[in-house]
């Protein structure tokens, strides 16, 4: 079981955390298309390597945060408050429908 560095509590067993998956931008619901929306709902980049993802310290401080993890070896190079959090910063790479090949997905 890996350790995860909560920005507020420090290193804790990953079993204390909830996993939200890779960070992604919610399309504008007023203008979105089915293709774009369903890419947001169901498609993930799932890279072998650097991934920005959301976590929730469920059995701890109950705060949401972001982690940058290498999916090939579980090395977490950074954890930080949510990028839209007042304490946070906004320079994340978020998956958008444009990153994904949606043509092969029936929507």
């Amino acid at each position: 079981m890996m350790h995860l560095d909560c920005p507020w509590c420090g290193y804790r067993n990953v079993s204390e955390f909830g996993y939200l998956g890779e960070l992604r931008e919610r399309p504008d619901p007023a203008t979105t298309t089915r293709e774009e929306w369903r890419a947001y709902l169901y498609l993930r980049r799932n890279p072998a390597g650097r991934l920005e993802e959301g976590w929730y310290h469920r059995a701890g401080c109950r705060r949401y945060f972001e982690a940058v993890r290498d999916t090939t070896d579980n090395t977490v190079s950074e954890t930080r408050p949510p990028t839209r959090h007042p304490d946070g910063h906004d320079e994340g790479e978020h998956a958008t429908a444009g990153d994904l090949d949606v043509t092969s997905v029936s929507v």
Partner: peptide
């Protein structure tokens, strides 16, 4: 509850 917190902490601080 977790959804409320997620909205308040991430999308709508």
């Amino acid at each position: 509850w977790e959804w409320v917190e997620e909205l308040l902490q991430t999308s709508h601080p």
